[in-house]
Deep mutational scan, measured.
Amino acid sequence: RERTTFTRAQLDVLEALFAKTRYPDIFMREEVALKINLPESRVQVWFKNRRAKCRQ
């Protein structure tokens, strides 16, 4: 699998959701994945990595 490159628009949507909740449930992830045209698994990993970035 190639490394996913997120567009600015995708990142804006993800960051906005992250500001609301750091742990979105499966339904929220599915919804945002459809909206920004990414698989739900990529959204899940993005959140995992974003939380890790926050902890540093």
Score class of each variant (00 low, 15 high):
Arg1Leu: 14
Arg1Ile: 13
Arg1Ala: 15
Glu2Val: 07
Glu2Arg: 05
Glu2Ala: 06
Glu2Asp: 09
Glu2Thr: 06
Arg3His: 13
Arg3Gln: 15
Arg3Trp: 07
Arg3Cys: 06
Arg3Val: 13
Thr4Asp: 13
Thr4Val: 08
Thr4Arg: 08
Thr4Glu: 13
Thr5Ala: 12
Thr5Trp: 09
Phe6Ala: 06
Phe6Tyr: 13
Phe6Cys: 07
Phe6Pro: 10
Phe6Leu: 13
Thr7Met: 04
Thr7Pro: 02
Thr7Asn: 14
Thr7Gly: 03
Arg8Cys: 07
Arg8Phe: 02
Arg8Met: 11
Arg8His: 13
Arg8Thr: 14
Ala9Glu: 12
Ala9Cys: 11
Ala9Lys: 14
Ala9Gly: 07
Gln10Met: 00
Gln10Asn: 03
Gln10Glu: 04
Leu11Met: 07
Asp12Gln: 05
Asp12Ile: 08
Val13Trp: 04
Val13Cys: 09
Val13Gln: 08
Val13Gly: 06
Val13Arg: 07
Leu14Lys: 01
Leu14Trp: 00
Leu14Pro: 00
Leu14Val: 01
Leu14Tyr: 00
Leu14Met: 08
Leu14Ala: 02
Leu14Glu: 01
Glu15Thr: 02
Glu15Trp: 00
Ala16His: 15
Ala16Asp: 04
Ala16Phe: 02
Ala16Tyr: 02
Leu17Arg: 02
Leu17Pro: 00
Leu17Thr: 14
Leu17Lys: 04
Phe18Asn: 02
Phe18Glu: 01
Phe18Arg: 01
Phe18Cys: 00
Phe18Met: 04
Ala19Arg: 10
Ala19Pro: 03
Ala19Tyr: 03
Ala19Ser: 12
Ala19Asn: 14
Ala19Leu: 11
Ala19Glu: 10
Ala19Lys: 08
Ala19His: 14
Lys20Asn: 09
Lys20Val: 07
Lys20Phe: 02
Lys20Glu: 06
Lys20Arg: 13
Lys20Ala: 06
Lys20Asp: 05
Thr21Leu: 04
Thr21Gly: 01
Thr21Ala: 11
Thr21Asn: 13
Thr21Val: 08
Arg22Val: 08
Arg22Cys: 07
Arg22Asp: 12
Arg22Trp: 13
Arg22Met: 13
Tyr23Ile: 04
Tyr23Phe: 14
Tyr23Glu: 14
Tyr23Leu: 03
Tyr23Ser: 05
Pro24His: 01
Pro24Ile: 01
Pro24Val: 02
Pro24Tyr: 02
Pro24Leu: 02
Pro24Arg: 01
Asp25Met: 01
Asp25Trp: 00
Ile26Tyr: 13
Ile26Lys: 13
Ile26Gln: 10
Ile26Arg: 15
Ile26Asn: 08
Ile26Glu: 13
Ile26His: 14
Phe27Gly: 14
Met28Lys: 09
Met28Pro: 08
Met28Gly: 02
Arg29Ile: 13
Arg29Lys: 02
Arg29Leu: 13
Arg29Val: 15
Glu30Cys: 10
Glu30Val: 06
Glu30Asp: 12
Glu30Thr: 14
Glu31Arg: 06
Glu31Ile: 04
Glu31Met: 09
Glu31Thr: 04
Val32Gly: 00
Val32Glu: 01
Val32Tyr: 00
Val32Thr: 05
Val32Arg: 02
Val32His: 02
Ala33Thr: 03
Ala33Asn: 01
Ala33Gln: 03
Ala33Trp: 00
Ala33Val: 00
Ala33Leu: 02
Ala33Lys: 00
Leu34His: 11
Leu34Tyr: 04
Leu34Trp: 07
Leu34Pro: 04
Leu34Cys: 11
Leu34Asn: 15
Lys35Asp: 05
Lys35Leu: 06
Lys35Ile: 05
Lys35Trp: 01
Lys35Pro: 00
Ile36Cys: 15
Ile36Gly: 06
Ile36Glu: 03
Ile36Pro: 02
Ile36Asn: 05
Ile36Met: 13
Asn37Arg: 09
Asn37Gln: 09
Asn37Asp: 14
Asn37Phe: 06
Leu38Tyr: 04
Leu38Ser: 09
Leu38Pro: 02
Leu38Asn: 03
Pro39Asp: 08
Pro39Ile: 05
Pro39Tyr: 02
Glu40Gly: 04
Glu40Ile: 05
Glu40Lys: 06
Glu40Ser: 08
Ser41Asn: 05
Ser41Lys: 09
Ser41Val: 09
Ser41His: 12
Arg42Gly: 09
Arg42Leu: 12
Arg42Val: 14
Arg42Asp: 15
Arg42Cys: 14
Arg42Ser: 12
Arg42Pro: 01
Arg42Asn: 11
Val43Gln: 01
Gln44Ile: 06
Gln44Gly: 13
Gln44Phe: 12
Gln44Ala: 14
Gln44Val: 08
Gln44Cys: 11
Gln44His: 11
Val45Leu: 12
Val45Phe: 14
Val45Met: 13
Val45Lys: 08
Val45Pro: 02
Val45Tyr: 12
Val45Gln: 14
Trp46Asp: 01
Trp46Glu: 00
Trp46Met: 01
Trp46Phe: 03
Phe47Gln: 00
Phe47Ile: 15
Phe47Asn: 01
Phe47Asp: 02
Lys48Pro: 00
Lys48His: 09
Lys48Asp: 09
Lys48Ala: 13
Lys48Gly: 06
Lys48Val: 10
Lys48Gln: 15
Lys48Thr: 13
Asn49Arg: 11
Asn49Leu: 10
Asn49His: 08
Asn49Asp: 15
Asn49Val: 08
Asn49Trp: 05
Arg50Cys: 05
Arg50Asp: 02
Arg50Glu: 15
Arg50Gln: 13
Arg50Ser: 09
Arg51Asp: 04
Arg51Asn: 13
Arg51Thr: 03
Ala52Tyr: 07
Ala52Ser: 09
Ala52Pro: 01
Ala52Lys: 12
Ala52Asp: 14
Ala52Trp: 05
Lys53Leu: 10
Lys53Pro: 06
Lys53Ser: 12
Lys53Glu: 15
Lys53Cys: 15
Lys53Ile: 08
Cys54Phe: 10
Cys54Tyr: 12
Cys54Met: 15
Cys54Ile: 12
Cys54Gln: 11
Arg55Cys: 14
Arg55Ile: 08
Arg55Asn: 10
Arg55Gly: 14
Gln56Trp: 06
Gln56Glu: 14
Gln56Gly: 13
Gln56Asn: 09
